[in-house]
Write a protein that binds this DNA or RNA. Sequence first.
DNA 1: CAAGATTGAGACATCAATCTTG
DNA 2: CAAGATTGATGTCTCAATCTTG
Lengths: 158, 158
Amino acid sequence: MGAMSTVTGFRWLTTEEQQSWRSYVTGTVLLQERLERDLREATGLSMAEYEILVRLSEAPDRRLRMTDLADRTLASKSRLSHQITRMAADGYVRREECLEDRRGAFAVLTDAGWERLVAAAPDHVQSVRTWLVDALTEDELSELGRLCQKVVDHLEVP
Amino acid sequence: MGAMSTVTGFRWLTTEEQQSWRSYVTGTVLLQERLERDLREATGLSMAEYEILVRLSEAPDRRLRMTDLADRTLASKSRLSHQITRMAADGYVRREECLEDRRGAFAVLTDAGWERLVAAAPDHVQSVRTWLVDALTEDELSELGRLCQKVVDHLEVP
DNA sequence: CAAGATTGAGACATCAATCTTG
DNA sequence: CAAGATTGATGTCTCAATCTTG
């Protein structure tokens, strides 16, 4: 497709940019799949479920408003609502109504959910360490974090 | 959860490692969603479809064996097969049998598929440029690519 | 039996519509 | 009307099972 640039004047990616972009896509996809698979095999949880358990466990009274939880887990309200329905059926969370704002709803971590998280966390952390942290030097990991944060900031500001 | 380390001796992530990991997750998820949405709105294609069109367009005779195409698009055989079924129904690709190995099958890019790719490519490249390339300096993008490639190599070798 | 590929069932995501309360 | 949240329909992914040929 690059040949078109001479005709249209459109700015394609340079060979080096393409290469970086390719490495980025491959790395993020493969790492994501590996972590997802590790977690699933070790604990039966998906990353989405794990993230929800973590966020609730960190919150005061282990409860968060649905919108708040959706923001923190990078999920849409719809996706989160379906997910919470499933996790409530499994007994890991429950819904509670919000008294201050009657439109609102809380998702609350149950004791079973807490136990599930405690049991799963070491496996997941080990997996992140094995496949990401140990793949890079300390400085490289910091730099990766910094670059990703730059991308985040650029996405949110423009 | 970090408090457990004193009891169990398990090695959790340090604050800095956690921060890098968080930025990484947020960045990759948000960028992925943004590019997916941009492409969908501009062209009606998903990234998965776009990737398939690209890989086929680059191949000799615009055709690839299913397994080969699956590898290049980082998809499972199953996912690719379903996807090709849908795209064939839309007229962008067609299946052809393999004469050398009768178990095999080719996916072949149709003219309509080629036209679809040509129409979509500038939008997608612009989107990648806007949200990733322009968010970083030239050196930073190279470094991001290098770090991701290190992760890929580490995943494949261990 | 292994490799290439497909299929169907069930899990999950997305999108638009809906309902309720501010 | 906007914001918080849920729902149902539809599309896509995963997993295990299957079929065919090497």
